[in-house]
Design a protein around this nucleic acid. Structure first.
Lengths: 210, 210
DNA sequence: TTTAATATCCCCCGTTTTCGGTATTGTGGC
DNA sequence: GCCACAATACCGAAAACGGGGGATATTAAA
């Protein structure tokens, strides 16, 4: 298990390096205080897992994660940071991080996290995992609280509208008259309390009633 | 720490009950094979954490989670199931689960998971955590790989359009002529490669270029 | 059985949008 | 100074849309 460390704090970086090299089966193949010439670092040494800090001077750990995953998607990046705010968590995950642990973690937790990553898991400090679930829920749940009682046909029409089709195209698609589409639209507008197709599409997408 | 168990397999249910009662500080206040009269169960006994199976006859564990969280949001629900498919994970999180562990977990892991929930964490089996991150990434990654080079004004207009406004309303809002809005729209259409306002709104929302 | 909801179609008419132009002004770069 | 580009504005015709009305058939619920 070859591990790379990115951490600007010299003391922590060296401690991590010692910890890793002292663990059976783990070997630290690099330890850097920043992400200068990032990709070059991987061109000569092979690496399985990166321990990545976020708050480094220059390129941030999140940017670095994105860059690494683009060129070496097989390298797993384990974020280790002091930041536990939603924005950093969000961005780190989207950048392709395989885990996210806080620096308050104990050495044993660090090692366990690396082992978890190795075996295909996604280690997260408890508070982080909790935030992730919260974020997940928040961003997906704004499911339509209100029930608009759209009929199947109306939903179909709305669906097509969301796909950018005109009344005529929808009519052709469903093999019914344009006039019928107009009637359906009138009903949809009334039920959604909107007055234009753009508003209907917007509401449909944002409240996931498609 | 008062714990309730929902699990239709008698053997597992009783094992869990034994395990919990044998653990210092934990007390099992109920163990049920299904969710009949679900809310009544909580009207007389207080409960901190529910261990919830998904695959029960009648009301599923996910439905039950939703119902419990509506009436007793302070009760934490820990899903324990054999299902590790995206759909169940997704729904469980949206229903308000505080954690999601597989039944293959060891007794020690069960206990640890309950402790994690108690301390505000979100325990997940490694493979589940990994799936959650995957789902997160898939659904949030700014899909907009392409850069559309919209100008600030164009983005503003598009933004207003997404809000359901007509050309005239946008013109008033930005205190410019409707004719200018028309010009902006033409440019937006060309840049986004769309041919109608609904398509533009749809693309703007789905690719998060608003 | 009456009623309500759904799905289908039609007409009319005014408004809005789309798309083809053209044109002026200001700004930043070369 | 010249050029590209953004932002502004206008014209006009064809197409699409929105809101109003009315109509019929089917089905499900009361």
């Amino acid at each position: 298990m070859k591990i790379c460390i990115f951490e600007d704090n010299t003391h922590l970086r060296e401690s991590l390096q010692l910890l890793i090299d002292a663990t059976a089966g783990f070997h630290c193949v690099g330890a850097f205080p920043n992400c200068k010439n990032l990709l070059e670092k991987f061109s000569d040494v092979s690496c399985d897992i990166c321990l990545m800090d976020i708050g480094m001077p220059g390129i941030s750990g999140i940017e670095a994660t994105k860059i690494i995953k683009e060129s070496y998607p097989e390298i797993q990046v384990l974020i280790q940071t002091v930041f536990s705010d939603d924005d950093n968590i969000f961005k780190a995950i989207c950048a392709g991080a395989s885990g996210y642990i806080l620096k308050t973690s104990s050495p044993a937790e660090y090692i366990q996290a690396i082992k978890d990553v190795k075996s295909g898991g996604a280690p997260m400090s408890p508070s982080i995992a909790s935030r992730v679930l919260q974020l997940f829920k928040l961003n997906f749940q704004p499911l339509t609280k209100e029930e608009y009682h759209l009929t199947d046909k109306e939903k179909l029409v709305l669906q097509q509208l969301v796909e950018g089709k005109s009344y005529k195209m929808i009519a052709d698609e469903l093999t019914i008259s344009v006039e019928t589409i107009k009637t359906h639209m009138k009903n949809i507008y009334a039920k959604l309390h909107v007055h234009s197709s753009t508003e209907a599409v917007s509401k449909a997408l944002q409240e996931r009633i498609i």
